[in-house]
């Protein structure tokens, strides 16, 4: 439970940081940021899941985040050049994985704090 609170606190800190940082994202970049948000969300939930599963591996975590972000950004760029909304592919995949990871986390937490 401590881990969940810590991570929620980190999210809040990040939100405050972004809210008060003097940065605005140019309109052309908002697609990339949207994909990056999904990649970060996916990685974060994946990390929580593997952490709760006691299978967390820093190398897998870091490389997964980097590779996923780069692929998603690359797809978005390619889509922009081709005039196809390829970034939707990344969004759909990340969205699906989001729900999968969330389901696993839910089960793990239930196993740990409810059934026991």
């Amino acid at each position: 439970m401590k881990a969940v609170i810590l991570i929620a606190g980190a999210l809040l800190a990040g939100i405050l940081l972004g809210a008060y940082a003097p940065i605005t994202i140019p309109k052309e970049w908002s697609k990339y940021v949207a994909v990056a948000i999904l990649a970060a969300l996916d990685t974060g939930l994946g990390g929580v899941r593997s952490g709760l599963d006691e299978r967390f591996d820093l190398a897998v975590f870091a490389s997964g985040f980097t590779a996923n972000s780069l692929l998603a950004a690359g797809l978005t760029l390619l889509g922009d050049k081709l005039g196809i909304d390829l970034y939707l592919a990344a969004i759909v995949v990340f969205g699906t994985r989001l729900f999968e990871n969330l389901a696993k986390i839910r089960r793990l937490l239930l196993d740990r704090y409810w059934s026991a």
Partner: peptide, 23 residues
């Protein structure tokens, strides 16, 4: 130590979220 890497990603996530929101 799995919390720390995940927390750092979550900080990035939060910052991106709120910046995008504002923009």
């Amino acid at each position: 130590g799995w919390e720390l890497p995940v927390m750092s990603i979550t900080v990035i996530l939060g910052a991106l979220l709120s910046t995008q929101f504002r923009s």
